[in-house]
Design a protein around this nucleic acid. Structure first.
Lengths: 220, 220
DNA sequence: CTCAAGATTTTAACACCGTTAAATATTTTA
DNA sequence: TAAAATATTTAACGGTGTTAAAATCTTGAG
């Protein structure tokens, strides 16, 4: 299989290829961010990346392939940003998670909005797959709820799986409303947090419940 | 202005025009329902409605105009189906509302899914407008919550406006998940109801809260 | 009934899009 | 350097929404 004596060095051809590819993708991201997903035209993209259309097909592929790469990039950045959540306190665990997301989105709001819209359109967040995006992301709230139950903060009148899914739904909805342009980023934060705290309050022990409502009114 | 002696009778020309228009729209609805929104092509539509493409432009307009008519139709049917909600009991008020929606969707599931997707894409449910769809629809849960508060079922640790919006968010999310194909109709019903009951439970008086959790576990 | 005026439909084209085969240019290898 | 492999571009195809202009039909006055 390997006929060379040394490891394959990154020949100039290949590095150039990579450079062009990156230039194309960066340009695509910029266009989506600035003008929306439907405004991405292959001919314009080719011009702005200083190549021709068939080169795009050669290096990346058709429009859906470009899309897929952008979505992968989105997911990688999100998972990176979520990182490990410190389980110091329950409220701050969720607050941290949402704040990190909001901070990430703020770095390039148009781009993330566009990427989420693209993701939603291509069924990225389907619930069925055991290993899909939804399953990976919903696991975290569920884990936090479980932890809260062992600490006696939650009463357990509803399963951690169900409660976690509802909590996750709260910021999923806020995220969608934001990426659809219905909310700005600060509203996204407030809306997510309100939803999360309210869900938790439903199953919270009395003093924790009191704390949650105090947090909610502090959000307004 | 009115030069005729009698009221204008619906001349054959005009009734034919209306008939054609209806035929075009019905055909469009069918195509969207069967093959999805992106599969609606004006040439195909013209053939299936037995007219030519410019006739569509003359009677209705371009693709976005067709879309708008279909969305209006969707909204009319929904508002019709919602009707007046009897305020007998709080839980059943929400349950009735959701059941009526689910029953309506079930009459032509593919069509309603497609119409919602089209509506979402064209920013139908924006939050800002005072008289928009969102404002009209969110008013009902808020009113029910207010009623529940006066009856002592809700404690009022959160405003009826906020709680109602969260409740509405619960079935808005479920509706989106259903129209995106992530849930089937029975899951939509279960998911909506769980979310609504959980939101209410957060602010519910003890015995009402107990009732709500019983309802939730009965849903599984 | 006839026929011109007006409304409606259709023919035929335009501009734009994603995509791809075939030709050209470039880089690597022997 | 010559040949082989690889990458890029030229030039086209089929399909889309849209529209001006020609052809057709309907209406109503004489």
């Amino acid at each position: 299989m390997d006929t060379t004596t040394h490891l394959a060095e990154p020949s100039a051809r290949i590095t150039n290829k990579k450079k062009r590819k990156e230039r194309i993708l960066a340009s695509a991201r910029q266009t989506i961010a600035r003008k929306g997903f439907d405004a991405l035209k292959l001919r314009d993209l080719a011009i702005s990346a200083d190549v021709t259309v068939p080169t795009i097909y050669n290096l990346i592929g058709g429009k859906s392939d470009i899309l897929n790469l952008i979505i992968s990039d989105l997911l990688a950045k999100i998972e990176d940003a979520q990182g490990n959540i410190e389980k110091t306190e329950i409220e701050t665990a969720f607050e941290n998670q949402i704040d990190r997301l909001a901070a990430l989105f703020a770095t390039d709001e148009d781009y993330y909005r566009a990427a989420f819209i693209a993701g939603d359109r291509s069924g990225l967040f389907e619930h069925d797959s055991e290993t899909g995006v939804f399953a990976r992301f919903v696991a975290q709230p569920i884990a936090i709820c479980r932890d809260a139950k062992t600490k006696g903060l939650l009463l357990g009148e509803i399963s951690s799986e169900q409660l976690g899914e509802q909590v996750y739904g709260s910021y999923r909805l806020a995220r969608q409303d934001w990426s659809n342009g219905y909310l700005d980023l600060s509203q996204f934060r407030q809306q997510s947090m309100t939803g999360v705290y309210l869900c938790l309050a439903a199953d919270a022990a009395p003093d924790f419940r009191k704390r949650l409502f105090k947090e909610i009114s502090a959000l307004q």
